[in-house]
Design a protein around this nucleic acid. Sequence first.
RNA 1: GGCCUAUUCGUCUAUCGGUUAGGACGCAAGAUUUUCAUUCUUGAAAGGGCAGUUCGAUUCUGCCAUAGGCUACCA
Length: 504
Amino acid sequence: MGKVRVRFAPSPTGALHIGGVRTCLYNYLFAKQNGGELIFRIEDTDSTRFVPGAEQYIIESLEWLGIKFDEGVSYGGDHGPYRQSERRDIYRKYVDQLLESGHAYIAFDTAAELEAKRNEIKNFQYDATTRMQMRNSLTMSAAEVKNLIDNGEKYVVRVLIEPNEEIIVHDLIRGDVHVNSSILDDKVLYKSADNLPTYHLANIVDDHLMEVTYVIRGEEWLPSAPLHVLLYRYFGWEESMPQFAHLALLLKPDGNGKLSKRDGDRLGFPVFPLEWHDPKTGDISSGYRESGYLPEAVINFLALLGWNPGNDQELMTMDDLVRLFSLERCSKAGAKFDFEKGKWFNKEYLQLADNHRIALMMMKDIEAAGIHADISMVEDVVKYMKSRVSLIKELWPLCSFFWIAPTGFDEKAVAKRWKPETHSMMCELREKAAAWEDYSDIEGFESYMKAWCEEKGYGLGNVMNPFRLMLVGELKGPAMFELTSILGKEETLRRIDYALSKLN
RNA sequence: GGCCUAUUCGUCUAUCGGUUAGGACGCAAGAUUUUCAUUCUUGAAAGGGCAGUUCGAUUCUGCCAUAGGCUACCA
């Protein structure tokens, strides 16, 4: 057995769906684990569905997530070109091979004629039972066919499925799937209208030419896998046919059906890795990156949606996943997309992440609010506040008070914590605070203040809560002296003075 | 309608014939805490239904139900 070669082959019809990301991830993990290669191929044989920017979007998304290709579009390699629209000449040759060997034929039926047939015969299928009633090279003379083609008549090439053959698809996840060829139809392999093959033909030819050894793709392809097996057979490539693995689909969190772009908008979570601006509709769909997710969290979360290492381990790096992944442990049933769990993963990774990195990301939100912040201070804020959030974008609304001094005070908190004797206590506290120099000494300042409370017989709750209220405006924020260490002496005293002038 | 695939707590899942059916998310309660969060403890929560194989089925087989996919000159 040669080198393991797998491929991820999306169509550039829009943003890369999170389910597609997972398929790509599994391909990547499988390739890396086996010292193999991952190919990036663009399947753009349907020119009518092409969306500009989609290809670049897919590349950028996967780069953000840390999935690297060994060859393909924008990566290069010896098996190119990797865009199917650039492989026209290659396919034509194989279409002719099938035509010559009698495994395919030319059909002239128009869309209208086909439609009429479908109305006429219930469950009409273009196959052994019907093809002799149609306008094709099986029912017409060679001269007639040639004449039609010469006159520029549009035609398609259909595969000629031999009925009553037992086809077995060996699936690495599901075991053997048996299908009788009679239920298959004579699929269109090639259309003269644009001189392009359809998915089925292009897929088989490319996988063969690119020496793909494993096809790991979504379950939606399982029904056409028998056709693909047949095509390998008709081409005489059965010996080198890749092994198949069909992944269970990602389902909607609620209700029925597979996860779609709409669900994200409807339920309020991203289904795309990056924010996507649809060039046709102008719609903007949110992305994981812009929503404040860490790529490693998305990867970990996605990896576990339909696969598990066989034990209770849940937090895994890409390296762990490469080591642990196995197709045999992929689940056969579709997984509902659990957004809450995704958030939990992100929270976990946020705690593990380098504070400087998070600070850099948070800085964007701070600047968007028109604040000029010092990165080292942002880093400190992140250090003390990140345990309270799941998403990076939640940080700024929670922490804005570090940069924006309170101008009002939460009424409920005041009612509860600001008692008649509080004002004089806080005046005393102000003096103590003014007398202390090193605000960066968190423990020192804290024990100094606690000693004062004890000496005076003041309850900690009666001092700390009003203190916090003066500095923050409400009862939130990090530990009291972490807060003062970030604010610094000058700002702390300034806020106290302002509060004392407003509250009494 | 036809074909294919699947079916364990609300969700993601473990179990490869014998377990008090385990873990995680979420939820609830409690402890800790100067706020919030963290952390810790505890709790509620599952084998779709009916047959069969077997000493014994969540696990194997069949049927039914349900769910998902496919059924295009889309991928």
